[in-house]
């Protein structure tokens, strides 16, 4: 047997006074994810490159073949057209992965949240903390992508400084939505639904070409999907083609993220504190 005594005596720690317990500790979930990713940083870093490769491939490779596109009365090169769309999908990708696979693993497989809830933290801390993490990851991707866009001279307007908060809204929306959906998933098989949603969104939400190519009814269907809202918002800001519609897009995304957060919070309470 080890000779070490019980450390209770050697270092008596007083638990902090119970002020604000169960509130405002969401940042600890973020701290957890930072520590967890210290060994898996390559997952974080590599995730950024996929949209970048698409930008260089489809954006640059097809630039000459597509030529110029008309937007808001002016005509812009195809690369300029596709870049903000890919920024939106980068923000989506950055947020969605941890909000779905990551949360499911912690919720159902590793039972990480069961352990967390045995501490002073509450479900709301868990929901806010995890969404904050998704948002941070999405934001980091967005900053990196915007930097590349600037370096390639793809930023056409000063309004583009608003692209970062707008991209964060996209991350917020998809993070909240992903987290909410994940709370209802039963097994890994259900995650086919995630890519079944993400891949068509990526391909058909106007990232690569205007919706005017679609028949009328399909256009309306796509316009209510969240990625389209993000693409439209970012493209408007990046190209400087503004209008009140941009505010509508922003409100839509904010509302979606908030709904996801509240819903996920409730559902997590049901699941974890029966």
């Amino acid at each position: 047997m080890s000779s070490s005594g019980v450390p209770m005596l050697t270092l008596p720690l007083r638990v902090l006074p119970p002020v604000g317990l169960g509130r405002g500790r969401a940042r600890l979930l973020v701290e957890r994810n930072v520590i967890a990713y210290r060994r898996g940083w390559i997952f974080l870093v590599s995730g950024f490159f996929e949209p970048l490769f698409y930008l260089l491939s489809i954006g640059l490779g097809l630039n000459h073949l597509v030529g110029h596109l008309a937007i808001g009365g002016s005509s812009i090169p195809y690369t300029d057209y596709v870049a903000p769309g890919l920024l939106a999908s980068s923000a989506m990708n950055g947020a969605i992965f941890d909000a779905t696979f990551g949360i499911f693993f912690k919720l159902k497989i590793a039972k990480t949240y069961d352990a967390v809830l045995a501490t002073p933290l509450g479900v709301r801390d868990v929901a806010i903390g995890e969404l904050a993490w998704s948002l941070i990851r999405g934001t980091v991707y967005s900053i990196a992508f915007l930097t590349v866009m600037a370096a390639l001279g793809l930023i056409a307007s000063w309004w583009a400084v608003l692209c970062l908060p707008a991209a964060m809204l996209v991350s917020f929306a998809f993070g909240g939505l992903g987290m909410f959906g994940t709370c209802y998933m039963r097994s890994w098989q259900d995650f086919d639904l995630v890519s079944l949603a993400i891949v068509p969104l990526f391909l058909f939400s106007g990232v690569f070409y205007p919706l005017s190519l679609y028949p009328g009814w399909l256009r309306i269907v796509i316009m209510v999907t969240p990625l389209y809202q993000g693409v439209a918002l970012l493209r408007g800001l990046d190209t400087g083609v503004l209008g009140p519609a941009l505010l509508v897009h922003a409100c839509y995304l904010a509302l979606l993220g908030a709904t996801g957060l509240v819903g996920a919070s409730r559902r997590l309470g049901h699941l974890l504190l029966p």
């Binding site: 638990v15 520590i35 590793a110 039972k111 990480t112 352990a115 501490t119």
Partner: peptide, 26 residues
């Protein structure tokens, strides 16, 4: 000490203890 350990599988042994302490605000 729950029946199923609920240890954080993505963390090291040390970080499991460290982070849990952080949850308590230490």
């Amino acid at each position: 000490v729950p029946q199923d350990d609920t240890l954080d599988l993505e963390l090291t042994v040390r970080d499991n203890l460290y982070l849990y302490g952080r949850y308590f605000g230490l």
